[in-house]
Design a protein around this nucleic acid. Structure first.
Lengths: 207, 207, 207, 207
DNA sequence: GATGAATGAGTCTTCATTCAT
DNA sequence: GATGAATGAAGACTCATTCAT
């Protein structure tokens, strides 16, 4: 069985040039993954597209897995940032509108790199399943749950923990599915609005 | 880029023994996929587990892709069968209860081969993306849409076509997500019931 | 790359036996090791010299290490066989002559594959499963020790176990050194005779 | 085939700091070779252990081969020094005792860097086979031969040149073998004494 | 003098697929 | 129908070495 490959970065970029190289590599990886899929992306091709030698790629990422993981973690981080930057909204706005803001934000982030997300979701959503992923989900769920607690009077489900968890995962799952099945509606915001309805009506007694 | 491999069966099994061989091969494929994942499953290993030679495997399936597709199609077919066998229910029962029946049925089918579905969903849900898949979804969506039409008075969304489509895909996406994130709730029926609530409240004005 | 020219349009219908293939591979490995050294021998080159594909090589030897080990073990086995086939001699002949027989035998075996032994000794005498090597040495040492016991009256050293061990290892070390420094004397038997003198005088009180 | 890499030092260190750097590099090389073996030692790792940049390493040693050779030559030089510092002994003492002194000295030098010698002998004793190596052996052999000439009356072998050569190489080979097989006896002096017996009895008519 | 990011030829190894028996 | 030895293109990864800063 495949031993878990090393994924911690091989070296910390200290110079300006090095940071650029890492960025260029991640950029190239995303592009190649989008075009050829996760399995079809070879390290040699990624290096070529990045305009660096294969040796340089392995300077910064000890295995292909590490490279993929960096890309996946970036996707997760972008998603989490949607929650983080809307923390105030979650606290001040009514649940319905807060939901809309979040769902729209997630849809936008996903739509911005539609092909990458579609490939990832359809071919490799199991990858990068480490601390970062759990942490991201946990943080997002915690924020949602806190919001549910604050609006408890209007919230229909009894088990707030499960409701928060289910709601977050449902939204993510449907948006990700949308990268294949609702490309138009994902970009236009139609999917986000419909999803908002679904989630709000699930959560609120008086939606 | 890899050319699309031939996937039509090389020969139609006419004899008893041949049918057995095909069944054994599919069985082995599912088992190996469940254990090693879709990428980790090699044709040689599948043949070994099936107890036939690699040559025999290629007698019945011209490429690995054909083998995988057969497995995926079988999953789809099982899902579609949930709709087909509950056609009467969809017509006679109130939308709420019909939804519950369908969601429970899909959850059961998925839970029965939990690991296979989890692997497939996380690693290869893009595979087998051919006529069969669309046809399956289309048929299911059509049934749901017909039900919505019949209950139009109680149905909240205006665009019944989109609503039917979204509802089917949401249910499938969440259940599939559940093979990783809600294994317990998927088996126990808790997830199905919660999903039923979500869908019913989305669909009905008076849920 | 210079592929081996095909004589017939399709592949040559000469289905080699697995055993033949293994033999051919070992042969090729020895040749390549002799010519390019242990580090310089690549699996691709070995396969090419053997006239089989690289895939076939890996069919029989899971790693390069396994291949190298097989070659090393064969060398050890050949050396051990010198002792095994002269067991009777060791028992019946006076120690001096028995020593000569053994040393000559070892020299002959080594001289027969002089370059291979020279490469192995200078570049990779650490390779090969330690256990197998120890076992081989142990067996040879045990035979020598038994002979010393039988002639104990004439034997000078007190510690027969150590004497047997040292004598065996000295002979092997000097003969192996000879593959580089005494190529002529190794082939002609001069080195063996001189070594015999050294060992005999070390062992016997009245040599 | 790998062209023979340049091995002459790229620059002669003239400054204090430079000499330190060379010493530090050799030290690091020995350490890394001892721990990882000759093949496993990479120039990058050696530079890291030495605490200098890889560029600096290549300032002083034009190739990895040059670095390795420097280490090997230092081993040879240490061995030769055993003969050089005992020149007087060789001339004044009886052959038996002179032999003991030399063998003990060689054993001590070897035992002091046991792991390095073991690695070198088992993995790369072919390396550094240049002028220095031959010169070292030649000088040692010449000294021994001179001693044999002086004691010709007591010396058993007719061919003094060959006897001197064989004796030196046998001692070195057995001591080096001892770094793997007689680590204890090598350190304690037991191996040296036993070897002395063997050599003395080979050389002298009346040992 | 020193640095270390970058290079890329060259290795080992995998696995879908073929075909003579 | 069945077999399984053989194939070989392709991919991940290493490491001695260079050179711009």
């Amino acid at each position: 069985m495949p031993r878990r490959p090393r994924t911690s970065p091989r070296r910390t970029p200290r110079q300006r040039r090095a940071e650029d190289t890492v960025a260029v590599l991640l950029e190239a990886t995303e592009r190649v993954m989008s075009e050829r899929g996760f399995a079809g992306a070879t390290t040699n091709h990624i290096a070529e597209v990045a305009g660096v030698s294969i040796g340089t790629l392995y300077h910064y990422f000890p295995t292909k897995e590490a490279l993929v993981e960096a890309v996946v973690h970036r996707m997760w981080r972008d998603e989490l940032e949607v929650f983080a930057t809307r923390a105030a909204v979650l606290e001040s706005l009514p649940l319905e509108q807060a939901t809309r803001e979040l769902v729209r934000g997630l849809a936008e982030v996903t739509a911005r790199k539609m092909d990458l997300y579609r490939r990832w979701y359809g071919e490799a959503s199991n990858l990068g399943q480490l601390g970062v992923g759990l942490e991201m989900t946990d943080q997002a769920v915690a924020m949602v749950r806190a919001a549910l607690e604050r609006s408890r009077a209007r919230v229909r489900p009894n088990d707030l923990a499960f409701a928060a968890d289910l709601v977050v995962k449902t939204v993510l799952a449907v948006i990700r599915t949308g990268t294949r099945d609702y490309r138009e509606e994902l970009s236009s915001g139609v999917l986000a609005d419909e999803l908002t309805d679904m989630i709000a009506r699930y959560l609120l007694v008086d939606a």
